[in-house]
């Protein structure tokens, strides 16, 4: 949505101050975000700004707090402390304090969430076309032909054959289900996509294909994304920036290739050196 808007103004000699301001205002500002489970730390003291078009990778091993952090950011969990300020159409709003209705509305339009298991993000008893068209229908699309056309178009963009538009996801392979979930999420042009281990559980060749697809879509649509993964190769491919988490804390963050090639923190160095080379 933003990319389309930006593209229209690029090159035109117009009042770029608003556009420039949009570009320099963070899309998402996170301040001191913390979640505790009794005495245990889920995540603690997380701070960062995400700008339009940036892809942030969050890596860590099991128990690092990365999934907790993602859930708090996406509004699935209520944090115990901190702010998650999103640049809505009406100005910056702390989504932690938002009424649930407003947050759900955000989740339907400006945000998208790609689950690790595609079954969590799809309606298994509804056809592929219906799955992709649902968000369109939820925001008011009322022309069957156009909805179907948009659905087929998006299936093509995620490399699912058009003749599968009426098949149920239960008839799809894992990789296809994941691609369908991505199509379903991106069809309304959200500005921020949360992804939880998007390639987890998939075969290696399927993972590769999915990563290429995600790269292309993120670049094409100018999306901002926050991707949680334990796979460093995924972040090197997809993320501009990287946050390394351990024990609930962010131990290092910075430019992806810099954090991976010149890790400063002890844990990051351990992580990078542990990766097997093929």
């Amino acid at each position: 949505m933003w990319a389309r808007w930006a593209h229209r103004w690029q090159g035109a000699d117009v009042d770029t101050s608003i556009w420039a301001k949009m570009k320099t205002q963070p899309l998402l500002s996170v301040r001191d975000l913390s979640k505790f489970y009794g005495g245990r730390i889920g995540c603690a003291g997380v701070n960062f700004d995400l700008f339009p078009g940036e892809v942030l990778g969050i890596v860590g091993e099991s128990g690092s707090g990365k999934s907790t952090l993602l859930s708090c950011l996406a509004g699935h969990l209520a944090p115990d402390r901190g702010e998650v300020i999103f640049a809505t159409a009406e100005g910056p709003r702390d989504t932690v304090l938002m009424a649930e209705a407003a947050r759900r509305r955000l989740a339907r339009t400006d945000w998208a969430y790609v689950h690790q298991n595609p079954r969590d993000g799809l309606r298994m008893s509804v056809s592929a076309g219906g799955n992709v068209g649902e968000r369109l229908m939820a925001v008011g699309a009322r022309h069957y032909g156009q909805i179907r056309e948009a659905a087929v178009d998006w299936l093509g963009r995620v490399e699912i054959a058009a003749d599968r538009v009426d098949d149920r996801p239960s008839a799809f392979s894992g990789g296809m289900q994941q691609r369908l979930q991505i199509a379903r999420n991106l069809v309304t042009g959200p500005r921020l996509v949360f992804m939880d281990e998007p390639t987890g559980g998939l075969d290696v060749s399927v993972q590769a294909r999915l990563l290429d697809l995600l790269r292309g879509l993120v670049r094409e649509m100018g999306l901002s994304a926050i991707i949680v993964t334990h796979d460093l190769a995924v972040v090197r491919l997809l993320a501009d920036r990287l946050m390394v988490m351990k024990g609930g804390y962010v131990v290092e963050q910075g430019l992806t290739d810099q954090v991976l090639d010149d890790p400063q923190h002890e844990y990051t160095q351990l992580l990078v050196s542990s990766v097997l080379q093929v």
């Binding site: 910075g254 430019l255 290739d257 810099q258 090639d261 010149d262 400063q264």
Partner: peptide, 9 residues
């Protein structure tokens, strides 16, 4: 060179 490129801190 890598420092100029931003790859090394």
């Amino acid at each position: 060179m890598r420092m100029i490129w931003g790859n090394y801190l």
